[in-house]
Amino acid sequence: MVNLTINGQKVQAANGTTILKAAESIGIKIPTFCYDERLVAHGACRICVVEVAGARSLMASCTVPVTEGMIVQTHSPSVIETRKDILRLILANHPLDCLTCEKAGNCKLQDYCYEYDIKESGIVGTKKNYPIDDSNPFFSLDRNKCIMCGKCIRVDNELQCTGAINYNSRGFNTHVGIPYDRELEQSTCVSCGNCVSACPVGALSSKNHAKFRSWEVKTVRTTCSYCGVGCQMDLQVKDNKVVGVEPVNMAPNDGLLCVKGKYGYRFIDHPDRLKTPLIKKDGSFVAATWDEAYDLIADKMRNVKENYGSDAFGGFSSARCTNEENYLMQKLFRAVVGTNNIDHCARL
């Protein structure tokens, strides 16, 4: 263990802990853009700088491990002034279209500009002017809003490991792209949206099929309904409608999803959903009440059981349904119908 002082408070932290994490442990929040706890910190954005007594310059708290006796100021005047400068530099090349930006309310740049009272950049220089890459059906890439934190590139290359995007060009012209600066749709991108989930600003944003602001939605944690990995995700709900999905950073998926988990939720409120029981009459389906449907089924079941016995029934349960439902389905067939003719699609 290492003993240090942060903002006058004594802190104990394990060897190797970063200043950022040690501060977090006593409730001190340091701003970050490029930091992602799943990745080895690379200190690219510098917004997390802090003052360390005896150090020649401010240090990126996400990369510097704590040492014995260290004295840290996370919000000293020079730290705050530096963060303001960083924000001004970013804003010098960032459109101020928060009014219509998809990410408003869920944007770190917006949050920190508010926190540090930065209204405008005041720095005049060359402006980025990239066309918006709208080629992917699920999300768009607006490089004009990119703050070059590199998170999307690292998530793609080090966690998702698809390697579709990387840095193109050098210096001021550095930008996120694919080889030969073609459109995303011509890359090896698998549309998992993990870069979108990681983007701290509005550069990568989902093409939402319903308009919502982050403060208007409630989130409900659940398990993905596609493959057997069982990814944990938060459904974003507005007005009884699922409007988005965000991955959860915990086992088993650790903040990753695939294209089906991230964007395949749009079937939920599809107009084709079955909304009422249907009974086939003279070859076509007619809407019925639940009681009519249950009565018909129950009558038929009694009839078949009487005439042909319990083994004249076959039940197909479903790997799409919950444990509780599968349990009840086999119980219905075993305990009520009286047969073990119950199976599901495990083999298919």
């Binding site: 444990n323 349990y327 119950i342 199976d343």
Partner: peptide, 15 residues
């Protein structure tokens, strides 16, 4: 392959 194949088997949705 499916979200709850494991659970369906665990729950005895097997003959």
């Amino acid at each position: 392959g499916q979200n709850n194949v494991q659970g369906s088997c665990d729950m005895g949705a097997l003959p």
